[in-house]
Amino acid sequence: MRITNHPLLGPQPPVNLVPLEVDGQVIWAKEGEPIAAALLAYGIRLCRTTKRRGEPRGVFCGIGHCTDCVMTVDGIPNVRTCVTPVRAGMKVTTQRGLGQWPNDH
């Protein structure tokens, strides 16, 4: 959920929303915000599932240190979504295990 108004920071400045494709669905994100923030704005918290047990994982540290938030972005696996800025038309998918590189089989 976006915080539209804040007692100290004031209302959110108007921004350009751009489309972001998440597992085939389009959501609207602020250009330049971390992918994870765009997902949280829609209540999407699952980033990946683990390799062996398929357990769900999401954001933990929010500053690029723990790698729990990695997803596949434009075909590239293991992208830390908490520190990777949104660009218009990006395609993000929930990652399974270690993910697949574009030319992997």
Binding site: M1, R2, I3, H6, L9, Q12, E33, P34, A36, A37, L40, A41, R45, G58, V59, F60, C61, G62, I63, C82
Partner: peptide, 17 residues
């Protein structure tokens, strides 16, 4: 998540975790 992570999302990116 870390409390600091929540703080980053709330105050910097302005979304609720």
């Amino acid at each position: 998540m870390g409390a600091g992570a929540a703080q980053t999302f709330v105050n910097l990116h302005r979304v609720l975790p």
